[in-house]
Simulated assay, not measured.
Amino acid sequence: MGIPSGRFSIYEGTEIISNGRLSFSYKTRGDGHYAPQWEHTKWLAIGQNESSAAHFVAVDGKDEGDGWSCRMRIVDGNYDGYWLDSSDGWLCAVGSSKQRWKFLGNGEHYEWWQGERPVVVRQSGPNNDGASGFRLRAEYGANPRTYTVRPL
C-alpha cells in the first residue's frame, strides 16, 4: 500500500473488526450504583463496538526501505486538527508535534513504531482512571504487534 494518500484508520491485528479499531474514547467501569458511560480522552485506545474509529492523515510521508514513515494529523471527531504524539510513551492527541511514526511491512499489515519503540497495547492507562479498554503505548523493549492500516 505505501504511504496513504488520504484519510486512514488503524486496527489492531490483521483483520478489520470493530473491537480492534483505534479510538479516542473509552467506557468507564460501572459500579453497583452507576452504569458505564462513554468518555472522550486524549489518549488513543483500542475501541469497543460502540466507539467511533480515529481517522488520520499522513503528513511529510517518506518511503523507507522496509515501509514508510510520517507525522500523523488527526482528522474528524473531538481532536480534529490535533497531532498524534507519544512523548511520555502513551499515544495521545496534542496541539502540535514533530514526532515521526514508522510503519514497517507491506500491503495493509505493519508493525508500528515511534523511533526505537514499538507501539503496543497496555491494559492500564496513563492516569489509571478506571477505564475499561486498552491504551496504546510506544514502549522500549516491547514485542512489536501487527496493525492494519486501512484507507477510507
Rank of each mutant, 00 (worst) to 15 (best):
I46E: 04
G2C: 03
R117I: 05
E108S: 15
R145N: 10
Y110Q: 05
F24E: 00
R100D: 08
Y11T: 07
G125N: 15
Y140N: 09
H33E: 08
W113C: 09
M1L: 09
F56G: 06
E50D: 15
I17H: 05
P4F: 05
F103E: 13
T14Y: 12
G105C: 09
C92M: 08
L152K: 10
G95W: 00
R73E: 15
T146F: 05
M1Q: 12
D66Q: 09
S87Y: 03
G89Q: 01
R145K: 15
F134N: 12
P118A: 13
W90H: 02
S18V: 11
H33L: 13
M72K: 04
T146C: 10
D85I: 02
A35C: 04
K42G: 06
H55I: 07
L152G: 10
G105M: 05
D88I: 00
A54P: 08
S9K: 11
G130M: 11
Y26Q: 09
S96Y: 02
A53K: 14
G6T: 11
C92Q: 13
G105Y: 07
D66Y: 09
K102P: 01
N49C: 00
A54I: 06
N49Q: 06
R150C: 14
D85N: 06
S69M: 07
S97H: 05
S23V: 00
S69W: 02
